[in-house]
Design a protein around this nucleic acid. Sequence first.
RNA 1: GGGAGCAUAGCUCAGCUGGUUCAGAGCAUCUGCCUUACAAGCAGAGGGUCACAGGUUCGAAUCCUGUUGCUCCCACCA
Length: 875
Amino acid sequence: MTNEIPSKYDPSTSEDKWYKYWMDNQLFKSTPDNRPAYTIVIPPPNVTGVLHMGHMLNNTIQDLLIRRARMRGFNALWVPGTDHASIATEAKVVQKLRKEGVKKSDLSREDFLKHAWEWTDKHGGIILEQLKKLGASCDWDRTRFTMDEKYYESVIDTFIDLYKKGKIYRGERMINWDPAALTALSDEEVIYKEINSKLYHVSYQVAGTNDFVTIATTRPETILGDTAICVNPKDERYKHLHGKKAIVPLVNREVPIIADEYVEMEFGTGCLKVTPAHDMNDFMLGEKYNLQIINMMNADGTISEAGQLYVGMDRFEVRTKIVEDLQSAGALVKTEEHINKVGFSERTDVVIEPRLSLQWFVDMKDISKPALDHVMNDDIRFFPPKFKNSYRNWMENIKDWCISRQLWWGHQIPAWYDKDGNYEVAKTEEEALSKFQAKNPAITKADIHQDPDVLDTWFSSWLWPISVFDGLYSEDEIKYYYPTSDLVTAPEIMFFWVARMIIAGYEYRDELPFKNVYYTGIVRDKQGRKMSKSLGNSPDPLDLIAKYGADGVRVGMLLSSPAGNDLLFDEGLCEQGRNFANKIWNAFRLVKSWEEKVDDNLAQPESAAVAVNWMKNKFNQVLAEINDDYEKFRINEALMTTYKLVWDDFCAWYLEMVKPPFGQGMDRKTYQESVAIFENLLKILHPFMPFLSEEIWHFIGKRKDAKDSICVATWPEAAAFDNSILNAFNQFEQIVIGVRNVRKENNIANKEAIELKINKSENFTDAFNPNIAHLCNISSIEFINEKLNGCFSFIVEGSEFFIPFTANVDVEAEKKKIEEELNYTKGFLRSVEGKLNNEKFVNNAPAPVLESERKKQADALNKIKLLEEKLSSLN
RNA sequence: GGGAGCAUAGCUCAGCUGGUUCAGAGCAUCUGCCUUACAAGCAGAGGGUCACAGGUUCGAAUCCUGUUGCUCCCACCA
């Protein structure tokens, strides 16, 4: 029978089968009942995204947590879904249209959105299908999308609510402007890169004199917008200039020379040109000194009419041109090489332009307070906790959130404007109109228009843990599932997303959105580079699954990724996972083969009874460790502990101990016990390896009915364990290793039965005697009270073990070995006695430590005695 | 510039509030084995001044100080 089961586990035939089985039997479905809820909401991937290694790691961990919770009797719900990813998706649609020769500006908003929805329908959900390959046990009937009708509504309601509370305002601010996407970006969407650029020294004439003052700038094109020169008030070099005016070259504008501590005297010339419309800090100076603001650039990065010169030219062309012109005008003093950091758009990778514009903001100061406090006091726990520091740092210095984006794909801002620029925030056009009419009855629909901008994507995803339930389901559902239990995400989006969800949670439910946040690391390649599509160093997760099986990949990913630490990914890890699956598979083949060997006439051998008892205790001991690891989110530890339990304790020791001798039958009791133990192992393996564990589950032991899936099997109950049997096993293990070493060193074949004589010490336990004979091919065990000559021997815990010499004995090698052990033990004794002879140690060390040192001393003395006797017996 | 963290075997990491010769695990490496579940396997072995220098202590990988090297986050100097 066994030979009908292939010796290699083949995931490809089993994985799709079991996923279908889970779906058919609706095992991932959740509706409220009287069990406690355990909820995870997926960090929604971009709707048109494709699964990458980061998703793999992240979702494997979520699946692991949810599967374990399900088995532990929780009503486990994992809510899947996708994010509309406003700017990323819009950029892709624009790009696709461009390839078709269509410009966004040629389309109406409605037509563009039609294309965007087509794109979304075509690519959306691919990633969710990929997650199924991984084994993700989401309740797919609850799949949500941030642009679903109900979700859309809750986003709009939130905006209106915050506006009414005075937490949303509209204001003219310096924002990060993406001149390619033509939209504002939040600070978090700007990537700073070090760039080799040039520092241009340009001289400005001091008005009414023949004096010149030299400034340094990396952006000479902004000279067109200069409205001041600034020096440090303490700077002796420039004191004579205070209150004077300077003439901006080329445009010949007179601007004030102001003094402010902001200027660093050491940098450049210590003299700064001020362009309030095109630099964050200059804007600040502009406000402080009431400077003129000249917006000399258009939205697309070309020079505006206000710039006077180079109108319509691109900002980078102008940079080259203006340098030439400054040179011809004799205003360019010199050019230095300079490394500085320049902000780039995360999405379009063009240089960000600081830009003054009217945008919508959320006032974060008050609403973020509870979110800070509840993380700091561990109401919401972070794993690893070190991330609390950066969280605190960000929250304490939180700035208002610019939430408007000049895009079409997203939640359109519910504000309407009349022709004079007055606005009303309302849910519908009708409502807005009536608000306008209350002030001016003459206004008609034709006079007002909705704000064309949409909201920042994160303004919808910050509601995710609430809004996946909100609207579609009853308030009872939210009460049941919210707060969710654990959130698994990347530290990179701690501010974008995690912090804001916590803020929204307290603002809208007056409660935390989740209890624990587990931060995964970044998946890197062997050289430590982040795995990314553009670098081409990321394997396709689906290829990996095809090669190693989903279980193999899951194990591979989890083996080396402690919370918050980066995962250095290497295919070897998946190989290890696959090998582990195969090991379990073969253990299954062995146990399965016993099924038909069961002989009711056979009594359970004593060795098997001992092994079963030990294995049960061992299991309980390890289970306690694993449960503890899970509590602390030490997932890789839980896996490694499980791995060793299965591979070493179960396969290498237990199965060998209960395996009947060749050609003999199996007693029913041992068989049943073995199946029961195996089933328990499968249960703790299931969160790591859902497919394999399900496959074996159905072919070992009896299943009640079709729905008797391991997914819903009960997690083993933690039970007490007997340390004495575990200690006895350790002694037994050393004895077996001792015998194996004697065999190996002296070329005694395993097939050759040998005699073993034991001179017991008081520490010797008899519990495993039958197993020694069984595992080591011992023909007879005899207990003696003397030293034997002419034997190989070894010592375990004071007991001496003798194996009669065979023909090919190497006495010298044997002596050398004993001498080595003797030296080691003497050295050990010296170190122990060194302590014990130290008066200060004896006086200061606590009693238990002293006692243990004394015991070590006694044991060592005894061992030395035995070894010396042994050595002399060989002479 | 501000903040956080890290440095232990070739690699990835454990090592909790100082106390087993405390220096560990897995992988990798090496040496034997196709032993009737598994060569995707079995049995063994080697491998580390715990970054460096001081200090506290009877005792330090563990606590303190400094040095060096690395990583991340935040801010952004024209």
